[in-house]
Design a protein around this nucleic acid. Structure first.
Length: 755
DNA sequence: CGCGAGGATATTTTT
DNA sequence: TATCCTCGCG
């Protein structure tokens, strides 16, 4: 019996079909990852394909890692030769070798969304663009869309014709691109675009990769955009062994440029394509699956398919409506607690899925109050936190002196008395003389009109130069520590004296451990741990990547983040018209927008294996005003007999006729959603708990040391306490350290120990 | 040049 | 509501 006997007929067919273009339409939970991994194994073991010739592209690093593990387990030998990667990571890897052929240095920097915004601000200022009329966000998204559709600056300007706004945007696009190149930087879209550009202009490079990747597989194909399509089209043109796997019903990234036509039109673009549908679901109970089918059926423009399962009916879907969001969160948290106490599952078997990140807070608060371990996926990305970006900006500056954004970010962080005027002078000089910002700093004395600023600038440049030299001999971790030490960054955080500082410092520490982990990983793989590689890895991580498998947490995340995951018990919360589907999509009179939301709902429902709970609230605070929402139209699309709802005085099960079971009894349902200006501030009863979380260390009570005592600090070593000032919640302690000098710090998080 | 106050603004989703 | 940005003062 071979490993392929465990597959069903359709799956097997997909695995055995190795030559030519292949489209696998894989419904939710139909075992597509199994198919992909077995297909890789089959290619290597049965078809004697060199692993080196196989490329598998996934959407997230996490998915890539999983695929890698599973292939490793399946294939006895040689699996590490397979290239498993995300689109972005793949492009970076290629561009690090060849970017010089298309006008960049090979050590280009990658700009994230924040960087893009900063750059865009600059551009607008320079071009005198009125940012009241053209919002940076809007400009960026317009440019991003253009890039995703492979529209170049020239093309864009041409198409703009006489349209004033379009022409203006064209100018911005042009300047933005110029700036990126000047900074030797690429944004996310550029990574893909430049790669296409490289392939189009360098036939020999393209040929090299075509020869290399004779078998290409793309996961989550429904979320690819036009550039990505072009990329794989080019790569697969020679051998035509392209296998794409996706589910048009799970296409949820249109806003990011995903082009659903890529999957819908696959057969017409690749005329000889084989199409295989995987419709047997192995994940969910039939109740859950039927609900999902019933919802998605309301979408037009989709490939016809119906998921079915051998699994039993399972529990009915539970539906609850609450008065407000507090009650809703309360219920969910208590429900999870109860289930875990009864031994019905671990915390990590429970996931709470919501539409917007803002909704996570209430669940967090309730989890803290109820003492449930939880993990929020998403929200503010670790790497976009201010302190992390600051430290990274130092590293970027050391790595790539052309990255003006990074230099300007840190030139006065911590405060060095270098102000806006000085920075502008340098900037002007840099533009006039076509030098990079940092380059100018190294000979600041030539810049007219900065007076005493020269000394400060020179000192800064010297500091960076020193780091650059150090970086040649030190490990990354040592370098990073050195940067923190010599710049006094940590102290400057402490000096801010905010409660936040504690968590900021923790974050910096965590960054250091990530540096260390990176170095270890590199060592294991026999790769040099270069600064560039670290920065690139860091630039390409997604929130979902950080989800650890074997820790026991309740998982809180957005529906988008949940794609590709599964949980025994899923809570779909905030199911209200106006929230989900969001107000924006309801009012936009493009029915496709609601369809995308419906697909999102479909994704949410199909995450559940055994149990699904749907909740909503009649009243909820959004942006400081109270909204009254009616039940989500998506819930109404679920047949009543699949739902078990417990609401005062009405049993949902006895409403017949296929119409919504929630006809007219509940308040606020029959009218349209409306909102009301808040009259009085709503007292949040959980504020207390939030604070409890932030102040793990008690603020009151005596300190274990006093003036004159000898104490130990984790970083600064041993010293003598010279002063203790009571400052509101906390004590400000001044310590004269034997080696590190005198420092002021807050008792609550300095973690001083008496010695 | 640094800091604080007050006003504007945002919330759909993110590699 | 929470954050971000601008402006004016010391």
């Amino acid at each position: 019996m071979s490993i392929y006997d465990t597959l069903n007929e359709k799956q097997k067919e997909a695995v055995l079909c190795t030559e030519g273009p292949l489209l696998i339409l894989a419904g939710a939970g139909s075992g597509k990852t199994r198919v992909l991994t077995h297909r890789v194994a089959y290619l290597i073991e049965e078809k004697n394909v060199n692993p080196w010739n196989i490329l598998a592209i996934t959407f997230t690093n996490k998915a890539a890692g999983e695929m890698r593990d599973r292939v490793d387990r399946l294939v006895s030998f040689g699996a590490e030769g397979v290239w498993v990667s995300t689109f972005h990571a793949m492009c970076v890897r290629i561009l690090r070798r060849y970017a010089h052929l298309i006008g960049y240095d090979n050590n280009f920097t990658i700009y994230d969304t924040d960087d893009q915004k900063t750059l865009m601000k600059d551009v607008c200022k320079r071009l005198n663009v009125d940012t009241k009329m053209f919002k940076e966000r809007m400009l960026l998204s317009e440019i991003s869309h253009a890039k995703n559709e492979l529209v170049s600056v020239n093309q864009y300007k041409q198409e703009a014709g006489g349209n004033f706004a379009q022409r203006k945007i064209g100018e911005v696009y042009e300047e933005y691109e110029r700036e990126l190149i000047a900074n030797n930087a690429m944004d996310f879209d550029d990574l893909l675009l430049c790669c296409v550009d490289l392939f189009q202009t360098q036939p020999d490079v393209l040929d090299y990769y075509q020869e290399r990747f004779r078998y290409i597989m793309v996961d989550e194909y429904q979320d690819t955009n036009s550039v990505q399509f072009e990329l794989i089209r080019l790569l697969s043109m020679k051998y035509r062994n392209l296998c794409v796997v996706g589910d048009d019903d799970q296409s949820i990234y249109k806003f990011r440029g995903a082009n659903i036509r890529n999957i819908l039109d696959f057969e017409s673009v690749f005329e000889d394509a084989t199409v295989i549908k995987l419709e047997q679901n192995y994940r969910s109970t039939s109740h859950i699956l039927n609900a999902a089918n019933a919802v998605i059926r309301n979408n037009k423009g989709r490939k016809d398919k119906t998921l079915w399962t051998d699994n039993g009916e399972g529990d009915a879907i539970e539906f609850r409506q609450f008065d407000n969001a507090y009650d809703e969160a309360d219920f969910v948290v208590e429900d999870i607690k109860r289930a875990v106490r009864r031994g019905e599952g671990a915390y990590s078997d429970h996931a709470v899925l919501y539409r917007t990140n803002a909704q996570s807070r209430m669940f967090e608060e309730k989890c803290i109050a109820a003492n449930l371990p939880y993990k929020v996926v998403g929200g503010v990305n670790f790497y976009s936190r201010r302190e992390i970006k600051d430290v990274l900006a130092y590293l970027k500056t050391i790595d790539n002196g052309k990255d003006d954004l990074a230099v300007r970010r840190i030139i006065n962080v911590p405060k060095r008395g270098i102000g806006a005027t000085t920075i502008n002078r340098v900037q002007e000089y840099a533009i006039d003389h076509e030098e990079s910002f940092y380059q100018v700093l190294t000979h600041a004395k030539d810049v007219p009109g900065i007076g005493r600023g020269v000394t400060k600038l020179a000192a800064f440049a010297d500091l960076i130069e020193e780091f650059k030299h150090l970086s040649e001999n030190l490990s990354l971790l040592e370098l990073a520590k050195r940067v923190l030490d010599e710049t006094g960054y940590i102290e400057s955080l402490q000096a801010e004296g905010l409660e936040e500082a504690e968590s900021r410092i923790e974050n910096v520490d965590e960054l250091l451990s990530k540096v260390a982990a990176f170095e270890e990983a590199c060592e294991d793989n026999d790769e040099p741990a270069t600064l560039s590689r670290f920065l690139e890895e860091v630039a390409l991580v997604a929130d979902i990547d950080s989800l650890e498998e074997n820790s026991d947490y309740v998982i809180l995340m957005t529906l988008h983040a949940a794609k590709g995951l599964e949980f025994p018990h899923v809570y779909l919360v905030g199911m209200e018209d106006g929230l989900f589907p969001s107000y924006m999509t309801i009012t936009a009179d493009d029915p496709e927008e609601v369809e995308e939301e419906r697909r999102l709902c479909y994704v949410g429902i199909t995450r559940a294996k055994e149990k699904l709970t749907i909740t909503c609230a009649r009243r909820r605070m959004v942006r400081g005003e109270t909204q009254f929402n009616k039940l989500s139209r998506f819930v109404k699309e679920i047949p009543g007999e699949l739902l078990r709802g417990l609401r005062p005085s009405v049993s949902v099960n006895n409403t017949a006729g296929g119409i919504s079971p929630f006809g007219s009894t509940a308040p606020f349902e029959s009218g349209s959603s409306f909102s009301q200006k808040k009259r009085k501030p709503y007292a949040n009863p959980y504020v207390q708990n939030r604070q409890t979380k932030q102040f793990g260390t008690p603020k009151t009570g005596g300190l274990s040391y006093q003036v004159g005592d000898r104490v130990r600090h984790v970083k600064f070593g041993v010293g003598t306490v010279t002063q203790i000032v009571s400052g509101g919640r906390d004590y400000e302690v001044t310590v004269n350290f034997d080696t590190a000098g005198t420092k002021k710090m807050f008792a609550a998080f300095a973690k001083l120990e008496k010695v």
